[in-house]
């Protein structure tokens, strides 16, 4: 009975993810698209909770739903007019991409469904924080300290790069004819 209930919940969440993901990419208004994306990310977190991945679910909410969506909305509000509508896609492009998506989707689905996956014999149990923390800082097999450290290089480079691109320079206004009107 419990299995049936969790199955029903899974299908509801999965349907919600699919529905809002579709809305997110087809919406003509960029801010609405971001909001739909937010719902997709929250639903994904719900999926994790259903699978008993408490930590992953929490990270999903805190990082993606909390951090990244807010950043996306911020950058939309800073750079463009939020009410601006996208231009409609040309008919040929629409049908060509529809065809590509449908064929790719059908092929992947067929291959994945026909694959004989070995059912895991393990019970889905909650992974405790203790072992996650140890794995993150372990340097043996299945330990992730190297990746953890190397990512810091990526973050440092990303920050420096963001500063380089966004920093206003003394020569900026003079060299570019497009900028000279707005900066003076």
């Amino acid at each position: 009975m419990e299995i049936a209930a969790s199955k029903v919940i899974f299908y509801i969440i999965a349907a919600a993810i699919l529905f809002f993901a579709l809305l997110s990419v087809t919406s003509k208004r960029i801010l609405r698209a971001a909001t739909y994306l937010f719902i997709v990310l929250i639903s994904t977190a719900a999926l994790y909770f259903l699978l008993n991945y408490q930590f992953l679910g929490a990270v999903q909410i805190a990082l993606y739903a909390g951090g990244i969506v807010v950043m996306i909305i911020f950058s939309i509000l800073l750079t463009s007019h939020a009410g601006q509508k996208f231009e409609p896609v040309s008919r040929l492009k629409f049908f060509a991409s529809l065809l590509a998506v449908l064929v790719g989707w059908a092929l992947s689905l067929w291959v994945i469904l026909s694959h004989p996956f070995v059912a895991s014999s393990k019970e889905a149990v909650e992974v405790n924080m203790d072992s996650i923390g140890k794995a993150l800082l372990s340097y043996d097999r299945n330990g992730y300290v190297l990746v953890f450290e190397v990512i810091s290089i990526l973050l440092l480079a990303a920050m420096i790069g963001a500063i380089v691109i966004s920093k206003k320079q003394p020569g900026d206004g003079e060299t570019n004819p497009d900028n000279s009107k707005t900066s003076k």
Binding site: A157, A158, I160, G161, A162, V164, I165, K167, Q169, G171, D172, T175, N176, N179
Partner: peptide, 11 residues
């Protein structure tokens, strides 16, 4: 970082 290098000429 390559993307940032590509956009290096901000002007």
């Amino acid at each position: 970082p390559m993307a940032m290098l590509a956009a290096f000429d901000t002007f």
